[in-house]
Design a protein around this nucleic acid. Structure first.
Length: 228
DNA sequence: TGTCCGATTGGT
DNA sequence: CCAATCGGACAG
């Protein structure tokens, strides 16, 4: 074993000395095993969990109420469709439980959680949160005043990233070890979970019809209800 | 290097 | 319905 190998291991160990949040003292993070399943299974299980982000500006957190599953090479809507592997989507091929954050439309960020096994590029897009901690900070980041309903602060994937202070810097972050984390919450009962087509992927042909968008039907923080 | 376009959002 | 706004993917 070389000296550089040893220092790398030491660096990983030191990550467990991060300060605990005062607002969420019982920090029960979801496990690697939780995330290392297929994206559809993880997507549904994520509903009700709490996404937390600590920055120098403060702590924000919210209950996950809307998600979308993106599966590997066979899913035309996924960035990993056809086995595409580029600098942008590289983390999708890595271990589960890491954040895949990408920039889109020249102005927005979207936050995903990597699922499945190494080299199986699946992920879950987090589309909406019900704010729990740091509502004032979310308002400040969004540029909203007190007239904006709390439920609207982290509604929609790009709004969510703005409110939570998530950007390029969080790409690749380990959700089990850093300032961005997912902790257990009250799980949404299956009867309250609605399934619908994913948003904004009409170019995906047959896969556009798959019901891989899941949301808590009782939440008013969900970004868009399907037409009926 | 050049061109095309997007896992969005907010306003018309 | 449409513009904003620019990095990423890919063709040449």
């Amino acid at each position: 074993m070389s000296a550089s190998d040893h220092s790398r291991i030491t660096t990983h160990r030191s990550r467990f000395t991060l300060p605990q949040s005062r607002l969420t003292p019982h920090d029960s993070r979801l496990t690697r095993r939780f995330f290392a399943r297929d994206a559809v299974t993880v997507a549904k299980a994520l509903l009700g969990a709490i996404l937390v982000h600590e920055t120098s500006d403060g702590l924000t957190s919210g209950r996950i109420v809307e998600v979308e599953a993106y599966r590997g090479p066979e899913d035309r809507a996924a960035h990993s469709y056809g086995g595409r592997r580029t600098p942008r989507n590289e983390v999708m091929y890595g271990p589960a439980g890491h954040a895949y954050v990408y920039f889109v439309y020249g102005m927005h960020y979207c936050c995903n959680v990597v699922a499945a096994a190494v080299d199986v590029p699946e992920a879950i897009l987090i589309r909406a949160l019900e704010p729990v901690d740091g509502v004032d900070l979310m308002r400040a980041r969004r540029g909203c005043d007190e007239r904006t309903p709390v439920a609207a602060l982290a509604r929609g994937p790009a709004n969510l990233c703005r409110a939570m202070g998530i950007d390029r810097a969080a790409n690749g972050a380990d959700l089990l070890a850093g300032p961005l984390r997912v902790v257990r919450g009250r799980r949404v009962p299956p009867a309250r979970i609605a399934a619908a087509p994913r948003v904004g992927i009409d170019y995906a042909g047959p896969h556009a019809r798959r019901l891989w968008r899941f949301y808590d039907d009782a939440s008013d923080a969900v970004s868009a209800r399907p037409r009926r």
